[in-house]
Computed example of a mutant assay.
Amino acid sequence: AAGRLGEVVAEPAPAHGVRRLPPGPGRLELRGVTARRGGHTVLDGIDLVVPGGTTLAVVGRSGAGKSLLAAIAGRLADPDDGEVLLDGVPVRELAHDDLRRAVAHAFERPVLLGGTVEDAIGLGLPDPSPTRIREAARTAHADDFIRRLPHGYGTALADAPRSGGESQRLGLARAFAHDGRLLILDDALSSLDTVTEARITEALTGGSSATRLLVAHRAATAARADAVAWLDGGRVRAVGRHEELWGIAEYREAFAGEGPA
Results as ranks from 00 to 15, higher is better:
E11S: 12
A13H: 10
P14I: 08
A15C: 13
A15V: 15
H16Y: 07
H16W: 01
G17V: 03
G17M: 00
V18A: 02
R19N: 01
R19H: 07
R20D: 05
L21E: 04
L21R: 14
P22Q: 05
P22V: 06
P25R: 14
G26Q: 07
G26N: 04
R27E: 13
L28D: 06
E29W: 02
E29D: 05
E29L: 01
L30N: 10
L30C: 11
G32R: 15
V33Q: 10
A35K: 15
A35E: 07
R36N: 08
R37N: 03
G39P: 07
G39W: 11
H40N: 12
T41M: 05
T41A: 04
V42A: 06
V42F: 01
D44I: 05
I46D: 02
I46N: 14
D47N: 15
V49T: 14
V50H: 11
V50I: 15
G53Q: 14
T54V: 08
L56S: 04
L56T: 07
A57D: 02
A57E: 00
V58M: 04
V58Y: 02
V59E: 01
G60P: 12
G60S: 09
R61M: 05
G63P: 05
G63K: 15
A64V: 11
G65E: 07
G65I: 04
K66L: 13
K66V: 12
S67G: 08
L68M: 15
L68P: 09
A70E: 01
A71C: 11
I72D: 01
I72N: 05
A73I: 11
G74Y: 13
R75I: 10
L76G: 01
L76A: 04
A77Y: 10
P79Y: 13
P79D: 05
G82P: 10
G82C: 09
E83T: 12
E83Y: 07
V84C: 13
V84Y: 13
L86N: 03
L86I: 14
D87L: 11
V89D: 06
V89W: 13
P90E: 01
V91D: 10
V91G: 13
R92S: 08
E93M: 06
E93H: 14
L94Q: 06
L94V: 06
H96P: 01
D97Y: 02
D97W: 06
D98H: 02
L99N: 07
L99S: 08
R100P: 00
R100K: 09
V103G: 01
A104R: 13
A104W: 08
A104V: 00
A104I: 04
H105F: 15
A106P: 03
F107D: 01
E108R: 15
E108M: 09
R109W: 06
P110G: 01
L112V: 03
L113M: 11
L113G: 00
G115T: 08
G115D: 03
G115W: 06
T116F: 00
E118A: 08
A120L: 14
I121L: 04
I121S: 06
L125I: 03
P126Q: 03
P126L: 07
P128H: 14
P128V: 03
P128Y: 09
P130W: 09
T131F: 00
I133N: 00
E135Q: 10
E135W: 05
A136D: 04
A136F: 02
A137G: 05
A137D: 00
R138Y: 03
A140C: 10
A140Y: 12
A140L: 12
H141G: 03
H141M: 13
A142S: 11
A142Y: 13
D143A: 02
D143S: 06
D144G: 05
